[in-house]
């Protein structure tokens, strides 16, 4: 589905522009503690339009951070603003924010349509019917399923109806807490697709997750939270490149591993080469850029056929592991 199929989205983007441009989420030296436990520790960040993943191990403080942004927790120190307004003690902020909570807590006794309609009414929208129809269409729930009770829904449908309710008032900011939890790949792809479209249309989308494949595919920027602190932000590949103290590890398979290995070890960009017992080479490159440009040429020089080159530690997962470990 392309953006053109949903004219309402362009409207949303236009509305966003009319309302004072894209809404930014700004955290300024934010700390939050429960009792003696510091859940969020002095985080400063700005999140603009597009899809941003809030990453971190379980218990890192992602949920706390989202709740701070959504105004359901007060910062113990620092300020949290969305579109220039503080979020704590400010119900007006929900004109800008749409929230999709983690827990599967919807009014299960309502139908999907009733739920979205009720939300539209709570937002005092002028045309409730149209807003509901638009929101349901956006999540592709404008089917007969919309008139079934929510307690008959699958996990994926529940998530989507929650997103529809959160979108009904055309918020510029959408916050999703673990939206992919418990979904299977099909449902996840569906949800990702939706978030993509929203992000492309100028919305600020923030979702928390600990399943990294999703984030890799969403290819948005990430904010990595580790033990309540902001460990890294930006594109995760860039983040990896920034970790210059860690050599990049590649698994290389070729027609003549020994010859290739011998040639590579002579290169300044390579720190070490090891023959792996099962066949293949493990190359530790100190200078990523140079190595990756040299490899094919070196192989050709040696007359070696390259069968596989795998960056062993470039997945978001290993970036993540490094960040968590350090």
């Amino acid at each position: 589905m392309t953006i053109d199929n949903i004219p309402a989205q362009r409207d949303a983007a236009a509305a966003a522009a009319a309302n004072g441009g894209p809404a930014e989420i700004v955290l300024d030296n934010v700390t939050h503690w429960y009792g003696n436990v510091v859940a969020v520790n002095d985080i400063t960040m700005t999140i603009g339009p597009g899809v941003t993943g809030l990453l971190g191990p379980n218990g890192a403080g992602k949920s706390t951070l989202l709740h701070l942004v959504s105004g359901f927790l007060s910062p113990s120190r620092g300020t949290v603003t969305v579109a220039g307004q503080r979020t704590w003690h400010n119900p007006d902020i929900y004109k800008v924010i749409g929230l999709v909570p983690e827990r599967d807590s919807v009014y299960a006794f309502l139908t999907g349509r009733q739920f979205v309609t009720a939300t539209a009414k709570l937002h005092k929208l002028p045309d409730v019917g149209a807003a509901t129809a638009r929101a349901l269409a956006m999540v592709e729930m404008d089917t007969e399923a919309a008139d079934r009770r929510i307690d008959t829904y699958s996990k994926g449908m529940r998530q989507r109806i929650k997103v529809a309710a959160a979108l009904v008032h055309e918020p510029r900011v959408l916050l999703l807490d673990e939206p992919f939890n418990g979904m299977d790949p099909r449902q996840r792809m569906h949800m990702m697709d939706l978030l993509h479209r929203l992000g492309d249309s100028g919305h600020t989308i923030v979702f928390s997750s600990h399943i990294l494949e999703e984030v890799e595919r969403l290819s948005g920027t990430v904010q990595v939270i580790v033990s309540g602190r902001l460990a890294a932000s930006g594109d995760y590949r860039t983040i990896r490149r920034l970790m210059t103290t860690r050599p990049h590890v590649f698994q290389v398979a070729s027609s003549d591993d020994r010859a290739l290995g011998a040639a590579l070890i002579g290169r300044p960009s390579v720190n070490g080469v090891e023959l792996t017992p099962g066949g293949g080479l493990e190359v530790r490159a100190g200078d990523y850029g140079t190595f990756s440009r040299e490899l094919a040429a070196v192989a050709r020089e040696q007359g070696v056929r390259l069968r596989a080159v795998l960056p062993a530690d470039e997945s978001l997962e290993s970036v993540f592991t490094y960040l968590v470990a350090s």
């Binding site: 119900p91 827990r103 309710a165």
Partner: peptide
């Protein structure tokens, strides 16, 4: 208890 109250409170309606 089941935190469905969040859907209600995440609207501009006064508490």
């Amino acid at each position: 208890d089941d935190s469905s109250i969040l859907h209600l409170l995440a609207t501009p309606v006064s508490r």
